[in-house]
């Protein structure tokens, strides 16, 4: 088992390598540099800055320099946040994004799961139709509309919750952003689970179980739920990576110091090292989560267990 995990992680190294290379050269191909601003720098100053950050070297040397740093576990200095290392920035933002993302994931699973199960019990019934429509609404409204609406309603209108900000460990701060982050995922989980359950409930072994006179509840939870969870899990793997690395929209609207905005801002600021840092983090998460998905698959469906 451990050997299998190690092999999986090792086999991810080339993937991550290609990823970093791709991102490195893509970023460098974009016009403009990290020190371009509305206030043009005098040429001598610009040259001094370029030398300080090794931007005066050939692209290949910079690439090798970056890889060398990576081998030593150093993600380099940030170009945008002077005085901070990329590693520090990520280490500071990751716990925030992680707690938000995990909360959103749990919420999506719990609420989406409940809706999916309720809907699957009476397909095309009134409850199914109403909930189905609500759930679809969740995927159909962009979250930059939902998030400010939540703030207007719960923070300004009712005054129940803060409009933004992040104090570590404060549930009130996390509530609205978690909901905003989870909404689309609730919908996906509910839809996938409902479809999966309906398939499973039509399967021969469930009919057998029914024929044996087992109660509907037992059939649902003992027999149908396991296979029905498979598509949910394979969707949630990559989705979790997205949730954990945060969302620009939610972080911007709620003023949260998470990772999500680095994906956008670092690219726009040409903060080359920070871009590579977050891309690498994302890639690693995807690899790890895919591994977790495979393990869960094995647990839910013995046929898929690795030899």
């Amino acid at each position: 088992m451990i050997a299998f995990a190690l092999r999986r992680l090792l086999s991810a190294v080339p993937t991550l390598f290609v990823l970093v290379t791709l991102a490195f050269f893509l970023m460098r191909a974009a016009p403009g540099g990290p020190f371009d601003g509305e206030r043009t720098l005098p040429p001598q100053i610009e040259a001094a800055l370029a030398a300080e950050y090794h931007l005066d070297e050939s692209l290949w040397r910079q690439y090798l320099r970056y890889l060398g740093g990576l081998a030593r576990g150093d993600l380099g200095p940030s170009f945008q946040y002077e005085g901070y290392r990329v590693g520090e920035l990520i280490a500071a933002a990751l716990p925030v994004s992680l707690s938000l993302g995990a909360g959103a994931l749990l919420l999506a699973l719990a609420l989406g799961g409940a809706i999916g199960i309720v809907c699957a019990q009476r397909p095309d019934g009134a409850v199914d139709r109403v909930l189905g429509a609500v759930v679809l609404l969740g995927v159909s409204v962009p979250n930059y509309v939902v998030a400010p609406l939540l703030v207007l309603l719960f923070a300004i209108g009712l005054g129940w919750l803060p409009a933004g900000g992040w104090r570590p460990g404060t549930l009130a701060d996390a509530l609205l952003p978690t909901i905003a982050l989870a909404l689309p995922q609730i919908a996906y989980v509910a839809r996938l689970l409902r479809a999966g359950l309906l398939d499973a409930l039509a399967a021969p072994y469930v009919r057998t179980a029914r024929a044996k006179g087992l109660p509907e509840r037992t059939i649902l939870f003992r027999h149908a739920l396991r296979p029905a969870l498979l598509p949910v899990i394979s969707h949630l793997g990559p989705a979790a990576a997205g949730l954990i690395t945060g969302s620009v929209v939610v972080e911007q609207v709620f003023n949260i110091p998470g990772l999500g905005r680095y994906f956008v801002q670092a690219a726009l600021n040409r903060d080359y090292t920070l871009v590579l840092g977050v891309v690498l983090l994302y890639g690693t998460l995807i690899v790890m989560l895919n591994f977790v998905v495979d393990l869960l698959y094995g647990a839910l469906d013995p046929r898929l267990r690795p030899a």
């Binding site: 400010p148 703030v151 409009a163």
Partner: peptide
């Protein structure tokens, strides 16, 4: 000092008394 990239979000926090 609270940074914000979004003037609308900043205004909301002001109105909420934050």
């Amino acid at each position: 000092y609270v940074p914000s990239d979004d003037v609308a979000a900043e205004l909301k926090r002001y109105r909420a008394g934050e």
